[in-house]
Amino acid sequence: MSRKPYLRKMPKSWWLARRSYTSYMARELSCVFIGAYSLLIVVGLHRLSQGRDEYGAFLDALQSPLSLVFHAAALVFALIHTVSWFSLAPKAMPLQIGEKKLSGGPVVLAHYAVWIVVSAGVLLVARI
């Protein structure tokens, strides 16, 4: 009897097929906002190097509705990145004390603790 294996094609919209794939895609899309934000900082520094008025115009542009919408979306995706990054961190850092393998909980909590300290530090410096 001859064989005739049937190949199923993976649909381009595979990432909509399961909820876990969709949240993976949301995590991956965070890169668009993180990359754009990095480039925005370059633009800001460029305006800063041009002088007081040019930099002032840049700060004004940050107040435009378009900029606010972008940053609001970017914040949401940056948070998706942070939360997913921390939740996967234990997989990269297995802990074992003696015979006992430790659960990933403490690793995740340590990341959140550092995150809170760093964020509070930035807020504090920005306010002074």
């Binding site: 934000y37 700060l59 942070t82 930035v122 920005a126």
Partner: peptide, 20 residues
């Protein structure tokens, strides 16, 4: 990814939302 996870949210918040 590691650096971004720690600093990007707060930077976006300060420069893109809180100050504007």
């Amino acid at each position: 990814g590691m650096l971004s996870a720690f600093v990007t949210p707060v930077l976006i918040f300060v420069t893109g939302l809180a100050v504007p």
